[in-house]
Design a protein around this nucleic acid. Structure first.
Length: 451
DNA sequence: GCATGATCATGC
DNA sequence: GCATGATCATGC
């Protein structure tokens, strides 16, 4: 079946909206023991063409690649991409010979026919519905960044460091591992070290923003202009925006940016940030560059010694999940792989005022994730699997989860409404809600190079 | 003065 | 009511 125009193809695509995969599948691909994903079902049964794995786009006459991808509903009513969108495998030997315009990524993926289905854990796979379908062309602002990401990946291969590629290195376009297992490796041109096989991918955060734009109709705001993006990286633009305020107290910053100041209420800090970025009134998670690249901001208060006043908390641990997940798809690994933190750093001066010191855009190095964080994750699982031991002390209820001294990177500590705010462990015991915290000393080391 | 259990404030 | 970012409080 040939589709001659985009309109014709999209008309056909839209016929799938509202259908389940069971209704679409004509080749019993959902039956027991059958492999192959939803993409295969749509290709074969809905569009009626042969499955291939060419370097060319699926609908090659139109230069359109088909992708079937899932979103899930969050507890708060928003939606998120279930996963990153995995594109073509990177041939390290060949990609380095290309320009962006002739690259395998661009040739295959410049126009994407995206079909979104909702992932619902309580349903059988065949019961999932196609909810929306769109012909996606990258907005100009995004394409500038994607091109830089591609160049970053290729430059790393050119430096003989294909084995050191990491998803956290780039903003929207990533190089994610793809293979049967860790031993799936490939040759690289400028080093003898075999590198894990990787594919180009659109990051989960980037996919989430597409889905929110088209499914729940959310609008994002860019803080940077196309012109600026052409000349500078997001990181450079951020520094540029923040630099004029270095040395000012929080109160002075608020005054200069015309934001109401209240030393008791830290909510004015996000307001200061959106204001100095030039998008006053926009919530930080509605800033396009932040949402798409998954940049989360964190304020840090340094004591005069340069050590943060407090450890830094993250999400609460789901203990039932952590004992069941594999490391490769564990929550904490993915969080640090896919999240960039924007540290907004203040330091207490002699008058006990908080003075703006600078920012740092940071992601956790792969090595730290695969050693330190992995070790900590394993230890939590060990303790939970053996049954957490509690001890009542004068200061409260103590548990035997690995503490702040375990590896100098992160630890687990209570975080809830109060000590009675509890969650269930896999063995049925109750425990005060616990969160991951990055150790203050570790954060201090990260911030050594704050500009 | 840190370690660590407990708690606050806010937004949705 | 809950998640999240942030901070308090005190025994050691």
């Amino acid at each position: 079946m040939l589709y001659k125009t985009e309109t014709e193809l999209m008309k056909k695509a839209q016929e799938a909206i509202g259908k389940t995969f069971n209704e679409i599948d004509q080749h019993d691909r959902l039956g027991k023991g059958q492999k192959g994903g939803f993409g295969h079902i749509i290709e074969e049964s809905h569009f009626g063409y042969e499955i291939n794995s060419n370097a060319e786009p699926d609908f090659k006459e139109l230069g359109i690649e088909l992708k079937v991808t899932a979103f899930k509903k969050n507890k708060n009513g928003t939606i998120s991409a279930k996963e990153r969108l995995v594109l073509n495998i990177i041939n390290y030997m060949e990609e380095v010979c290309e320009q962006f315009e002739t690259s395998s990524f661009w040739r295959k993926n410049q126009k994407l026919l995206l079909m979104f289905y909702e992932w619902q854990t309580e349903l059988e796979r065949g019961e999932f519905h196609i909810i929306e379908t769109i012909l996606y062309k990258y907005p100009e602002e995004d394409l500038i960044i994607i091109k830089k990401d591609w160049e970053h990946i290729v430059n790393k291969i050119k430096a003989g460091e294909a084995h050191l590629l990491s998803e956290g290195d780039t903003q929207y376009l990533g190089a994610c591992t793809k293979g049967a297992n860790k031993s799936t490796v490939r040759q690289q041109p400028y080093s003898d070290i075999l590198a894990p096989q990787r594919a180009f991918s659109l990051k989960q955060s980037y996919m989430t923003s597409i889905m929110r734009e088209y499914i729940t109709k959310e609008k994002l705001t860019y803080f940077s202009s196309k012109k600026e993006l052409l000349e500078k990286t997001i990181e450079e633009l951020l520094y540029e925006r923040f630099v004029p305020y270095i040395g000012l107290t929080q109160k002075e910053m608020a005054a200069r940016l015309d934001v109401p100041y209240n030393s008791k209420n830290k909510a004015f800090i996000p307001k200061i940030i959106s204001s100095l970025l030039g998008v006053k009134g926009t919530k930080l998670d509605q800033i396009a560059e932040f949402a798409k690249a998954n940049i989360q901001f964190k304020t840090v208060q340094l004591k005069q010694s340069g050590i943060p006043k407090e450890h830094m908390s993250f999400v609460n641990i789901n203990f039932k999940q952590i004992v069941e997940e594999d490391w490769e798809d564990s929550y904490i690994r993915n969080y640090f792989l896919e999240t960039q933190l924007l540290f907004v750093v203040f330091q207490l001066n002699e008058q006990d005022e908080l003075v703006f010191k600078g920012i740092k855009l940071w992601h956790m190095p792969m090595e730290t994730i695969e050693n330190g964080v992995l070790g900590y994750w394993e230890e939590i699982r060990n303790v939970v699997n053996e049954g957490v031991q509690f001890e009542i002390t004068k200061r409260g209820i103590k548990n035997n989860l690995p503490d702040v001294k375990f590896n100098g990177i992160l630890h687990v500590r209570p975080k809830g409404r109060n000590a009675a705010d509890k969650t269930e462990l896999p063995d049925g015991q109750l425990i005060t809600k616990q969160s991951y915290w990055l150790n203050a000393e570790y954060v201090a080391n990260i911030l050594n190079e704050v500009r």
